[in-house]
Amino acid sequence: MSPALQRRLPLFATAAVLAALYVTAGLRYDNFFSARVAVDFFTDNAALGIAAVGMTLVIFSGGIDLSVGAVVGFTSIFVATLVEKHHVHPALAAVAALAVGTVLGAGMGALIHFFRQPAFLITLAGMFLMRGGAFWISTDSTGLAHPLLQRLSLWELPLTEKAALKMSALVLLALLALGGLLAHWTRFGRNLLALGGNESSAQLMGLPVGATRVAVYAFSGLCAALAGLALMLNSGSGNPRDGIGLELDAIAVVVIGGTLLSGGRGHMLGTLLGLLIFGVIQSAIRFDGSLDPAWTRLIIGALLLGFILLQRLLLRRLVRR
């Protein structure tokens, strides 16, 4: 196997899994191949995908962010409450929520970097903080009545007669593009991979390790807040329970996309493919009707195990040489 091929092997594996799942489901279920189903992959999983973009970059750097699900819930109820109960303009409320997510992320990044604390622990604390904060604002959901939010919530970009992209899906696509650009076409993205691949080398090469790490958690916090907005718009209400367990799905999507969970190697394209795999499994189970939705989690878990073992095997071969 050529080195270049081996390097891309996880990505190819992801693509192959996606193709196999899509074709199998398409042959089994009528209308599965329709454009509408395909568009729904994006709409239904907009929040997950947006959070996964930030998670991808965090995992590139060898870290992990368990707070994203809670940030989603916080943003959702925070913005809804500000707009509906306190009559703040939606744009202002959204900007405030994005700022909260970004600042939280930066703070966690600083604790992780400067105090040398494990990322999982600090971001777990962030998760507690934001989920508790969400419930502090309100324990019940709040419906969106503001005309601008309603319009945004219902707005669609028509593609074909039956398929149309919702706002949240557009945000997802834009963010995937932005994330891809950041990851693969900027020094920041490459520094992240260097940091995840070998921190002491990155330091010796003179890369700005601390700033990069703080920035990536801030970016992940921003993405999570955006995901919260997307989820709020999709569901038409703000709910402090939004996004419970979302961080795990986001991690799964990233890893199934061929990104090394210990950092240093990966591709944003893989995250898109991983998201589609998630969407195909979900839709197939919905189409089937007789299958328990819990199978989604189970299949995702099995894929996760498979990809982690595959990566481990490839890495071992590299080290052995």
Partner: peptide, 20 residues
């Protein structure tokens, strides 16, 4: 070797001073 094993040869040569 104080380089990053998971990145390409080209990237390792240019990390921190990539043209662009």
């Amino acid at each position: 070797v104080n380089l990053v094993a998971t990145l390409s040869v080209a990237e390792n040569l240019c990390l921190g001073r990539q043209p662009g």
